[in-house]
Design a protein around this nucleic acid. Structure first.
Length: 462
DNA sequence: TCTGGGGTCCTGGGCCAC
DNA sequence: TCTGGTGGCCCAGGACCC
């Protein structure tokens, strides 16, 4: 999908169509998740600090992501892809590989192109958004082709032309070559994919190690045998938070770690997992990042066990100077839980060893702070009263709209819907009882929605 | 106003068992 | 009994991707 989050916002907000739209974290330490093509003309791009984006494009619309909406659109698109082949490998919400051969179609350029064109039409009809299609004989080449096709295009790499096509491209076009590897290669005098092929496998392995070097060499020869894998097992689950202001207070740090552990376990359980290794991540005031991990005797999905492990790991970290980010993760996932949780907890307590204090008591004290039933409700209400830029609202009198901005006790709402003309703006008090948060409206109206044609036999690629 | 969040994979050192 | 090689696990960090 092209500039996916920004495009989805433009589709749902008529007044933003054709305008610079930037989606990302709006806090003091936010970064750009997606910039519309109009915003990219100002030099704004993904992963750019939001402050820099605001300097480059001060008049752009700045919105916080609405993952619920994006997920719905993503599900629709993935559904279309699965009509083409049983082998669909999602890479993210807006990108996937499709194995056409598994869809029962022999490779030939003309029919693949026809299917690609129809897929793009179907995506447009079902979601109202544009997507780009890359067609090629392998995942790496299909990915490169889809990048070439953007925005709103289709690109096919003819079998037999791959090496010539890659030879002149920068090494950065290969998957797995980021800034660090790119620099490393450049220092060795290797700038293009063709130069990787010329350098030879031994040299690549010498420069980058066995796995990375060997892999990159075969990629440079346009050889990529990786299959499209429909079902990927999750290997780890983690949550992390960057704080608007560095945290110095050790008690507060501990409290945040407890909260993160709690959230992490919720996600873990939500996915039906348990895990054996608990990982604590700390990014300090100077952006230096360190991780500490502890492997338990058996997998757990017990919030108390994860919380205690994370707290033990925190003990070994010097947070003097301040903490910018904290994260808690669980890896070594299993789909079962250690039955003897009491033994697990006892083992953890024993590992804490001679240190003073009763782990169970500490756990309960912390638990009382983390999930207070009363305070939780208050917090939820407070969160509801925060009006996030870009989020949907409904006014009792004026109907559906979205938050254009808020501050100093006021919230500005633009009243328009995906199918309407650009709407008018009105300002309300933040506690106006007539105003409430609402769910995103479908981008394509029920009556407009066109059923995607075709069956499982249709070929296409991603 | 410098640098998010959720992942995967690889490397290399330390340690331990055989 | 000592030594060395090997392989596996654990842990920390780095790089990369979307």
């Amino acid at each position: 999908m092209d500039a996916f989050y920004a495009s989805a916002e433009q589709a749902s907000k008529p007044s933003l169509r054709g305008k610079a739209v930037i989606v990302g974290g709006l806090g003091p330490r936010g970064v750009v998740a997606t910039a519309s093509y109009e915003a990219r003309r100002f030099g704004v791009h993904s992963a750019m600090p939001m402050g820099q984006a605001r300097r480059l494009a001060p008049n752009a619309a700045y919105l916080v992501p609405r993952f619920g909406l994006y997920r719905e659109i993503s599900d629709q698109v993935m559904g279309l892809l699965r009509e083409l082949s049983p082998l669909v490998e999602p890479l993210s919400l807006d990108e996937a590989f499709v194995d056409l051969e598994a869809g029962g179609v022999a490779w030939d350029a003309a029919s693949a192109e026809a299917v690609g064109r129809r897929l793009r039409t179907d995506i447009r009809a079902v979601t109202g958004l544009t997507g780009s299609v890359g067609l090629a004989a392998s995942k790496m080449l299909a990915k490169i082709a889809s990048e070439e096709a953007k925005p709103d295009g289709l690109w096919l790499i003819e079998p037999g032309t791959e090496r010539a096509l890659l030879a002149e491209k920068s090494v950065r076009i290969l998957p797995g070559v980021g800034p660090a590897t790119g620099d490393h290669l450049r220092r060795a005098g290797i700038n293009t994919v063709g130069e990787i092929a010329e350098a030879g496998e031994d040299e690549l392995v010498r420069l980058l190690g066995k796995a990375h070097g060997g892999h990159l060499y075969t990629m440079a020869l346009a050889v990529d045998e990786r299959p499209v894998v429909a079902e990927r097992e999750t290997k780890s689950v983690s949550v992390e938070d960057t704080f608007d202001v560095d945290i110095h207070d050790r008690v507060r740090v501990r409290l945040e770690v407890d909260r993160l552990a709690e959230r992490c376990v919720q996600r873990l359980r939500g996915g039906g997992h348990s895990g054996r290794t608990v990982v604590l991540k700390v990014r300090r005031y100077d952006f230096s990042t360190l991780t500490r991990s502890e492997t338990l005797r058996g997998p757990t999905d017990d919030p108390g066990v994860v919380r205690e492990a994370a707290a033990r790991l925190l003990e070994s970290v010097d947070t003097t100077g301040g903490v910018r980010l904290l994260g808690v993760g669980v890896s070594g996932l299993a789909d079962y839980t250690q039955e003897d949780l009491f033994a697990q907890a006892a083992a953890a307590a024993a590992a804490a060893g001679s240190s003073e204090g009763e782990p169970e008591v500490a756990e309960e004290e912390v638990g009382a702070e983390v999930v207070p039933s009363g305070d939780g409700d208050v917090e939820e209400e407070a969160a509801e009263r925060r009006w996030h830029a870009g989020h949907d609202v409904r006014h009792a009198e004026f109907g559906p709209g979205w938050v254009q901005g808020s501050g100093v006790g006021r919230v500005t709402v633009r009243f328009e819907t995906p199918g309407s003309e650009p709407g008018r703006v009105r300002t309300f008090r933040v506690d106006d009882p007539a105003l409430s948060a609402s769910e995103p409206l479908p981008l394509v109206g029920e009556r407009d929605e066109v059923r995607a044609g075709g069956g499982a036999g249709s070929p296409a690629a991603g």
